[in-house]
Each structure stands twice: as structure tokens, then as C-alpha cells.
Design a protein around this nucleic acid. Structure first.
Lengths: 281, 281
DNA sequence: CGTGCGCTTGACCTGAGTCAATCCTGGTGG
DNA sequence: CCACCAGGATTGACTCAGGTCAAGCGCACG
């Protein structure tokens, strides 16, 4: 884990995802100054443990790129991923750790950490900061509600289908020459399985079966062509394409602070899943 | 559903659970005055639908007695209960409805409804009001995390065991002459099953099997003797008796505004599950 | 005294988890 | 450049936990 010296963000700010569409850009400029004075970048390799169990969090952070997973395991090691933390999202506010929760990097991650004390001092002062933290909490709650419902009321197949549909909101998406789109799944099978409360094997089989049904086509394990998003959504018990839990649109990440390594198909300029240019707001 | 004329709460306040340990007692007195001026009592019979699906909530409410269930169903009618709303808890803030969620009475319920506009006008003015709403949101998130983890990572048996243990925090509890305590489960099997993402039949069988193992004894379907709470907790994957999601302690309800009908064993003076007098705070 | 509903029990069966073998790919070192 | 290796992904075979379906049971209520 590399760690840069304190960075004032000054030059970077307009490029930074947190500034462009997250915390930093929505708070009072004075708060931003104070906060950025305590900011450090930090790069984590995939699977690095960021916080473990009841180890009280010592800092507040914002994800700049990559995905963190917020999870908890039972005694036999069965793991449940409770949330994905995406670029632009804050973590470490409200002592969300404590009861055996862990935060780990699901992919390579770059994040920005702020001093917790500085953050706590700023909270009561800036109503926009509070509003942003509140907003993100509401989103979190909404996503968790969806997940709980999905695990409790949907079949594994429906959950996987829904995961792919919802994934088009926050994972890279490219148009496909023959129509539809190609979703680049940023998570390994293990993580998908643990998020959807199923197993790696079932996930594989379900993907194959969705492929047999023509709902998807696997270009390679991580790149999935979705010819008809609406059809897949229907399989995933998503009534209208509109009602999915709110994730930040990765599309806004397109030119984030640190471009992802430019391998194979990974979309650097994602468009909307339906092939239209990315929606605003 | 009976509805009283507007009630100023004046005389009732000290008796009211929301005043004694919830919203009303924690906010600025001026806010309380304004809020209570728009307050109505409302009694709902069990299973009455309070809000349905995308019907935008028109009011903010506080549960005074009984339990509401916050739920969502899939297309085949499989239902998932996502949260229980207990005496003292607020609902209707932040448009939590919208995506097919429903709020229904799980038992007979008495609640206090406030005008949503009044509430929204007060929110920006009173920091203590905001703090209380925030606090309750954090609790909600925490409970939902536990539930998601439980459904995803625990077996149905573990979930039922844990449900009973956690239930001692928010459902009536009495000491048992032979030691341990008697928990009066306020929910029907159906609700328990839908909360724990299992079926009525499995719930029954699991209860029987816990009984065979001597972990519980069913006095009648709704009154369960727990000789050793810690042993049951262990079966429910609750490590230390301390780490359960935070529910309001029903013990504080003991003399709430409207006593529950005094049938059979229902404890009017619950004590702590371990037999000690109720813990403070 | 019938009816209905909630709870319980039994029989059955299948979806999905477990275990194990194989494939594939990218990375490493010779 | 190639052989080898490790880890992820896939596939197959097997098993059983727990869901479904179908009956009883018993209490509350009209």
C-alpha cells in the first residue's frame, strides 16, 4: 500500500471524482480546504484488508477508484458482502465498524483518507457536509434494502440476473456491435457469490444457463454481452428498468483521477447500458 | 382504524413512550409544541395496510405501541420483511417508500401521526430533531445489516435462535420460576418466517428441534421459556451476548400510553431476559 | 356447534450446496 | 521462447436441507 505525502488536492480537485460528483464538490469550500489539508492518497491491491472487525476506524475515506467490499463472516467462514463501496463514496463515518464488520478491497483501489478528528470537527460546522453524509447513508440503506429483499425473496438465478442489470449502473459498459451492451464485471465470482448469498459454482451455472437462454453471452468470464437489458431485468424481478437501488453511475468516473489500467476490453468511456449516451445527473 | 381529534399531547406527554424515550422527548420543546399541535392518535388492527407500494407517504408517524412491519413482496407473492418498527420509532421520514415497499401492522398498533409538512418545516430548524432522525436511521441500517448477514450467512435454525435472543430486547419478557425467562413473541409464525426468509413450516420444525435440544420450551405457541439465553445465543451465532443489533428496549414501554390488552401471559412488567431488573439507558 | 385461521406434523422432492476433477490464463523462471 | 505453476473459473456427480403440498389439530369467534 503506497501512501503519498499529504496532498492539498488543489490542482487535482477538478479531476477528482470526489470533487466532481461526491463529497468534496458538494461541501462548503472552506470545509473542503480544511479537509483536503489532511488528505492522503492510498493505493490498495485487491483483497487487502482495510479494516478488520472491531478495530475502530481511525480515519474517514473516500473511494477514488476501484471497489471496496463491506462484509461480515460467520464462524464457519461463510461470508456475506453487505455493501459495495464505489468511487465517490465515503466510509468510516458513524462507527460502522464494531460488530465484526470488515472492509476489504474487492479490486485494486485508490482512496483518499482524511483525518477522522478533522472530519468530526467539521461535521457540526458545515450543513452541506452533513447533508452529503446523510444522502450517502440514505443510499446505503436503500441498497441494503434491495439486497436483503433479493436474498430473502428471489431465487439465486433472479439475483444474478438483477446483479448484472444493476451492475450496468456502476461497472464499465460498452456498446456491442450487434446491439445491446457489454458489461465488464469488476468482481470475481467469489465476490459475486458472497454478495448474492450463493456459491461460486451456482453463479457459474446460472451464468451458463442465462447464456443458454440467450439473455447474456459471455465473451470471457468478466465481459458479458447483454443483448436486451430489459429482458434480463425481467428475469431479475426488476419491474421497470427504473427501479433499481441507487448506485453512483460509474459513467461519471470516465475520466477519474487515475485511469484504470488499459487492458483488454475495459471500457474507459462507458455509455449507458441501452446504448444511449450516458444520462446526466 | 379509529382516529382521535387533534391532540396536544400536553397531559399525556410524560406518559407517552415517544416523549419518554423517543423523538418527542429529545427535541427542542418548541419543536415539540409545534409537532404535537398536528398530532393525531391512530389505532390499527393487525394486518391493516398503512402504506402501500409507491403511494407516497403523506405523514410522519411514531409507533406508540405494537409493531409495524416494513416489507416488500416479489411478483409471486413471496414476501420479505425488512424491518420491524417498534414503539418509539419514527417512520415516513425520507421518502422511504417508492419502490414497492409496504408498511403494515404486524400486531394491533397505536401510533401518533404528524403532518408531513409541519415535520419537514421543523427539520431544518431543530438540530436535535435532525439528530434523532439520524440516530434512528443509523439503528435501522445496523439492524438491516444484521438481517442481511443472517439471511445470507446463517442457517434457518441459527436465524430462529438469534431471533429469539434478540427478541428479548424488544418483546415482553418475564422471569420463569425455574430460571431463565419467558419470551412472549408478539409476531405470528408467518411474520417470523418472512422476516427470517424461511417458511412457516420450517419455523415450526426449528422451534420443535430447539425444544428437543432443551434450548427452549414452548409453553404455548407464543410464549417461549428460554432456560439459558447464552446457550441459545450461541446457537444463533451471537458471540457475546452484547453484540446484537440495536432495538429499543421494550422494557421502557412497561407503562406506555396504552397498556396492551391483558390477556394470558403477556408481560406488563418485563424484566431483563437474564432475570435481572431491566437495565437503564 | 360449525367455521376459519393459525399452528403443527408428515411425506415428498428438488434446488442449490458440497466435493472433486478439470480447464484456462496469466505470470514466473529457466 | 517455452515449461511450469497457481489461482480462478468451470463442469460433473452427489446429497440433503429446507421448501412445497397436503392433512390434521385446536382454539376463538360468531
Amino acid at each position: 500500500m503506497t501512501r503519498s505525502p499529504a496532498c492539498k488536492c488543489a490542482g487535482l480537485a477538478p479531476e477528482c471524482i470526489s470533487y466532481r460528483l461526491g463529497l468534496c464538490g458538494r461541501i462548503d469550500p472552506a470545509t473542503f480546504q480544511a479537509l483536503s489539508a489532511s488528505a492522503h492518497f492510498e493505493d490498495l491491491p485487491a483483497d487487502r484488508i482495510l479494516w478488520h472487525d472491531d478495530h475502530a476506524p481511525a480515519f474517514v475515506g473516500v473511494v477514488l477508484s476501484g471497489i471496496l467490499r463491506f462484509e461480515r463472516s460467520n464462524s464457519q467462514g461463510r461470508r456475506q458482502v453487505l455493501n459495495l463501496l464505489l468511487p465517490g463514496e465515503i466510509f468510516g463515518v458513524e462507527n460502522e465498524l464494531g460488530a465484526g464488520y470488515t472492509i476489504e478491497a474487492a479490486t485494486d483501489v485508490r482512496l483518499c483518507r482524511f483525518d477522522a478528528h478533522v472530519f468530526d470537527r467539521l461535521m457540526p460546522k458545515d450543513r452541506r457536509l452533513r447533508a452529503e453524509v446523510y444522502r450517502q447513508n440514505v443510499n446505503r440503506l436503500e441498497r441494503l434494502r434491495w439486497l436483503t429483499w433479493a436474498i430473502g425473496a428471489l431465487s439465486p438465478e433472479e439475483r444474478v440476473a438483477a446483479f448484472l442489470v444493476i451492475g450496468t449502473d456502476y461497472m464499465p459498459v460498452q456498446p456491442h456491435p450487434e446491439g445491446g451492451c457489454v458489461l465488464s464485471v469488476m468482481l470475481g465470482r467469489r465476490d459475486i457469490a458472497d454478495l448474492l448469498a450463493t456459491t461460486v459454482e451456482s453463479t457459474c451455472r446460472i451464468l451458463k444457463s442465462l447464456e443458454r437462454d440467450g439473455l447474456i453471452e459471455m465473451l470471457d468470464p468478466r465481459n458479458i454481452h447483454i443483448p436486451d437489458l430489459a429482458a434480463l431485468a425481467e428475469r431479475g424481478a426488476i419491474q421497470r428498468l427504473g427501479d433499481r437501488p441507487s448506485f453512483p453511475r460509474i459513467v461519471r468516473m470516465a475520466r477519474s483521477a487515475r485511469p484504470l489500467p488499459l487492458r483488454e476490453l475495459r471500457a474507459m468511456m462507458p455509455i449507458n447500458a441501452d446504448g444511449a449516451p450516458a444520462r446526466a445527473s
